[in-house]
Nucleic acid binder design. Structure first.
Length: 743
DNA sequence: AATCCGTCTATTTTT
DNA sequence: TAGACGGATT
C-alpha cells in the first residue's frame, strides 16, 4: 500500500534521505528509476515539498516520459507544475518564457545537428572560406565543444593562425544564428545558463522555486550541464543525483564522469548510497561483469550481487570468420526459439554499426525476423524536414535557413544564381532573404515572386485553423505531396508526410493536459490560446516545431513485431534482454583500435563491454571471429582482452578454447552462405615455397603469446611472417629464428 | 534539373 | 566493400 513497500534497505535509505545533497551510485539493474521516481513521490506525499518545487532532469525524452508516467501512477495528485524533462527541453522552456531577457525572438527555432551543419556551411561559403582547410564538420565540432565548455567565441583562447580563424568562424556562425533566430542544441544550454547567471531576478525566482533538483544518468552530464545544475541549486536547494560511473560511455560527446567526484567534493555531499543489488541478471553474468570492470583503475567502486542463483555459464564461441559467426548466431537463435524463447527476448549487440550487415544477412537467410536499431528517425527524414521548413517560414519569415531549404524545393526554377542574387541583395540591405525576395522586382524576380506569393498564400490559408489542418494545407500547397507522387521511391515519403499530420494531431491532443510545451510558449504571454487553433504568431505551431526539433521521433517503424533486436552496445544501455549475444569481441574492434592508445579510452571501452554484458538476464553469449571483412579487406584478429578478464570459472567454451583447431565436420554440416564461406578461406601464403604456416592461422610465440598470422613473404631461410599479437602489437618474424608454434 | 562518375572515407549518439 | 558527396556532364 505504501510507496515504500518492496524497497530494499539501500533503496529505502535513498528514497527517504533528509533534505541534503545525495549521490546515488546505482549499478546496472539496481532499480535506479524506481528510486528516483519514488523519491519524488515520497517528497510530495510527505508534504516536504509541493510538486511545483521539483525539477527532474534526464537525457532522453523517453526517460523523461517514463519518469512522469511512473510518478503519476504513484501519486494521486497530478504532476502539473513539476518540471520533468531533458536538459534541452527544460532550457527551451525557460528560454521561451523569457525570450526577451535571453535576447531571442519568441519563435526562435531549434537547429538539429544536420541543420546546424547546413548553417555552418552557409557561413563558410559567405566568408569564402576554403572548405578543405576548414572542414564544416570540424568547425561544427569546434563550436559545440566550446559551447559545452561554456565558452563564447570571445572566451576562446587561440594561439595560432588556424584556431584564430576558427574562432572567427565561430563568431560569424553565432551572429548568423542570432540574425535568423536560430538556436542549436548546445546553445539552448549555454543561453539558458547565461540568462540565469546574468539575470539575478530570474535566478532568484527559479532558485526559490526548485527546492529539489533530481538528476538521472549523472555520469553523462557535461561541464556546462553541471554548471547549470549548480546555478539552479544555489545555496539552499537540494540535488539528488543518480548515476553509475561504470556505465559512462559518452565521453566522446562531452560527458564528464569527473562530475560525479566533483559533485561529491564541491557540494560536500553528505549522503552517498550504493545500490548494488541487481534484479536483472543471474550470478554468473554478474561475476563476469564485476571481474571485467574491476580492471578499470579510476572507479568510485561498486560490486553487483544478486539473490537469484548462479544461473548458466557465459558461453563463448570462436568463429573462423565474421560470416561463420553470424551464421552460428542465426542457428543459435533458431534453437532458442525452439526452446520457447520469443525472438523479442533476444538481442545481438556489436561495437559498430557496420557489423550488423553480416548478421542481418545470416538472419535473413535463416528467415528470422529482426529489427535493427539506429538510422534515420522520423523528424530527421528529408521530406519531413522540408515540410517543417515551410512551417518554419510561416512562423518566422526571417529564418534564412528554412528559406534556403524550400525556396527551390520542389524545383520551381529558382536556381543557384537566383539564390545568390537574393543573398547579395539581402546582405546589402542587411535584411533576411525573405525580405529581399519580397522586395525584389523585375528580372530574376518572376519565379521568386511566385514563391513569395505562394508562401503568403500559405500563411493566409493556415491562419486561424487547427494545427493538423494547417500542416495538411502546407503539404498540399507547397507541392511536396505532388512532387513525391511523381518520384519513383516517393511512396514512403508521402506516407511520412501523412504521418506528420498525425504527429500534429497527437501533439495537439497530448500537449493539452500536461501543457509543458505550451507553457514554454505562453508562460509570460498571458492567456492560453484556444485549443489547437493557429494564429498569426501561432504558439501551437511554434511549440510543435520545438517538439519536432527536440524529440527526433521513434527510431524505426515495426516496433511491435516479434523480432530479434540488433543494436550497438551504446544503444543497448538502459535495456535488458533474456538472451544477449555480444559479437565481434576482437582486439581492434572491441576494444576499438582508436580507443586503446589512451588509458581513458580503453577504460571507456571496458565500461561499454560492462554495459553490454549487464544487459543479459539469463543467458550471455560472447563471440569473436578470426577473420573479418572490414573496409573491403580481410583482417585477422585475436580475441578481445575482455574475454581474458572474465573469470574462467564462469566461462563455457562452445568451441575448443584458444581456437585454431576446428571440427571440419561441424562446418560441413552447417555451411554459411557461399559468398561468405569463400571470403572466410585463408588464402595460401604467397605461393613461393610451402610455409609451415597458413595465413589466418593461430600461433603461439614464447614471448608475445597468442597471435594470428596476417601475411607472409619470402621462402626458405628468408621466410618471414607478420603476426598480429593483439596487445603486443603487430610483428614481423623471421621463421628461421622465431620459435613459433601452431596454437 | 537530373544523372553520372570519380573520390574519399571508414567508432560510439542524444538533444 | 559500400555509401556519401561534390563536380561535371547531359
Amino acid at each position: 500500500m505504501s510507496l515504500l513497500d518492496h524497497l530494499n534497505p539501500e533503496q529505502l535509505a535513498a528514497v527517504t534521505l533528509p533534505n541534503q545533497h545525495a549521490l546515488i551510485l546505482a549499478g546496472a539493474g539496481s532499480g535506479k528509476t524506481r528510486v528516483l521516481t519514488t523519491r519524488i513521490a515520497w517528497l510530495v506525499q510527505t508534504g516536504n515539498v509541493s510538486p511545483m518545487g521539483i525539477l527532474a532532469v534526464t537525457f532522453t525524452n523517453k526517460a523523461a516520459r517514463e519518469m512522469l508516467t511512473r510518478i503519476s501512477a504513484m501519486l494521486p495528485i497530478n504532476t502539473r507544475g513539476m518540471w520533468v524533462g531533458t536538459f534541452h527541453g527544460l532550457c527551451n522552456r525557460m528560454l521561451r518564457a523569457h525570450h526577451r531577457e535571453a535576447g531571442l525572438p519568441q519563435l526562435f527555432h531549434i537547429l538539429d545537428t544536420q541543420d546546424q551543419l547546413a548553417v555552418v556551411k552557409r557561413v563558410l561559403k559567405a566568408l569564402n572560406v576554403d572548405e578543405e582547410k576548414f572542414q564544416p564538420k570540424q568547425v561544427q565540432w569546434f563550436i559545440n565543444g566550446a559551447k559545452e565548455e561554456g565558452r563564447r567565441a570571445k572566451d576562446v583562447e587561440a594561439y595560432d593562425e588556424f584556431s584564430r580563424r576558427t574562432v572567427e568562424l565561430y563568431a560569424a556562425y553565432d551572429e548568423q544564428c542570432q540574425k535568423d533566430g536560430l538556436v542549436d542544441f548546445p546553445e539552448l544550454l549555454l543561453r539558458c545558463f547565461e540568462l540565469l547567471s546574468r539575470n539575478e531576478v530570474l535566478r532568484a525566482h527559479y532558485q526559490q522555486r526548485f527546492r529539489h533538483i533530481l538528476v538521472d544518468e549523472f555520469q553523462d552530464t557535461n561541464r556546462l550541464q553541471y554548471r547549470w545544475l549548480k546555478l539552479l541549486a544555489g545555496q539552499g536547494n537540494v540535488i539528488f543525483a543518480v548515476g553509475d560511473d561504470d556505465q559512462s560511455i559518452y565521453r566522446f560527446r562531452g560527458a564528464n564522469v569527473g562530475n560525479m567526484a566533483d559533485f561529491e567534493r564541491e557540494f560536500k555531499v553528505p549522503n552517498l548510497i550504493r545500490l548494488e543489488q541487481n534484479y536483472r541478471s543471474h550470478g554468473n553474468i554478474l561475476n563476469a561483469a564485476n571481474a571485467l570492470i574491476s580492471h578499470n583503475r579510476r572507479r568510485l567502486g561498486k560490486n553487483l550481487w544478486t539473490a537469484a542463483g548462479e544461473g548458466e555459464p557465459v558461453r563463448i564461441y570462436e568463429a573462423q570468420s565474421d560470416g561463420y559467426e553470424a551464421h552460428w548466431i542465426a542457428g543459435e537463435v533458431q534453437s532458442l526459439v525452439g526452446e520457447g524463447y520469443t525472438r523479442g527476448d533476444i538481442a545481438v549487440l556489436y561495437r559498430s554499426n557496420a557489423q550488423s550487415r553480416v548478421i542481418e544477412h545470416a538472419l535473413f537467410s535463416a528467415g528470422i525476423p529482426y529489427r535493427v536499431y539506429g538510422g534515420l528517425r522520423f523528424f530527421e527524414r528529408q521530406e519531413v524536414k522540408h515540410a517543417l521548413a515551410y512551417l518554419r517560414l510561416l512562423a518566422n519569415p526571417e529564418d534564412d535557413s528554412a528559406f534556403l531549404r524550400v525556396v527551390n524545393f520542389p524545383p520551381r526554377g529558382i536556381g543557384a544564381r537566383s539564390v545568390e542574387q537574393l543573398q547579395d541583395a539581402a546582405r546589402m540591405r542587411d535584411a533576411s532573404l525573405w525580405r529581399a525576395a519580397a522586395q525584389l522586382t523585375g528580372k530574376a524576380g518572376v519565379s521568386v515572386g511566385t514563391f513569395v506569393r505562394l508562401i503568403e498564400a500559405m500563411r493566409a490559408g493556415t491562419r486561424g485553423i487547427p494545427l493538423p489542418e494547417a500542416v495538411d494545407h502546407v503539404l498540399h500547397a507547397s507541392g511536396l505531396l505532388e512532387h513525391y507522387k511523381s518520384e519513383r521511391e516517393g511512396a514512403d515519403r508521402i506516407e511520412n508526410l501523412e504521418e506528420l499530420v498525425n504527429a500534429a494531431t497527437s501533439f495537439v491532443r497530448d500537449e493539452l493536459p500536461s501543457g509543458a510545451a505550451m507553457a514554454a510558449v505562453d508562460a509570460t504571454e498571458g492567456a492560453a490560446p484556444e485549443a489547437g487553433v493557429a494564429d498569426a504568431a501561432d504558439p501551437w505551431l511554434a511549440a510543435f516545431l520545438a517538439h519536432a526539433a527536440l524529440e527526433s521521433g521513434e527510431n524505426q517503424a515495426g516496433e511491435g513485431i516479434e523480432a530479434v533486436q540488433l543494436m550497438t552496445a551504446h544503444s543497448a544501455k538502459g535495456l535488458e534482454f533474456h538472451i544477449v549475444f555480444v559479437s565481434g569481441l576482437e582486439e581492434g574492434l572491441f576494444p576499438h583500435e582508436q580507443s586503446v592508445t589512451e588509458e581513458d579510452g580503453l577504460e571507456e571501452e571496458r565500461r561499454l563491454m560492462y554495459v553490454a554484458v549487464t544487459r543479459a538476464r539469463t543467458r550471455l553469449y560472447l563471440s569473436f571471429a578470426q577473420t573479418r571483412l572490414l573496409h573491403g579487406q580481410t583482417r585477422y584478429n585475436v580475441a578481445s582482452r575482455f574475454l581474458d578478464e572474465i573469470p574462467a570459472e564462469v566461462q563455457k567454451w562452445l568451441t575448443p578454447r584458444g581456437g585454431g583447431v576446428f571440427d571440419e565436420g561441424a562446418w560441413k554440416a552447417a555451411p554459411p552462405p557461399a559468398r561468405l564461406a569463400a571470403k572466410a578461406e585463408g588464402r595460401a601464403a604467397g605461393g613461393r615455397g610451402a610455409l609451415p604456416f597458413r595465413i589466418g592461422q593461430s600461433v603461439t610465440h614464447p614471448k608475445f603469446g597468442a597471435g594470428v598470422i596476417v601475411s607472409a613473404e619470402g621462402s626458405g631461410a628468408d621466410a618471414r611472417v607478420q603476426v598480429n599479437f593483439g596487445r603486443q602489437g603487430m610483428k614481423w618474424l623471421q621463421l628461421e629464428y622465431a620459435k613459433l608454434t601452431a596454437a
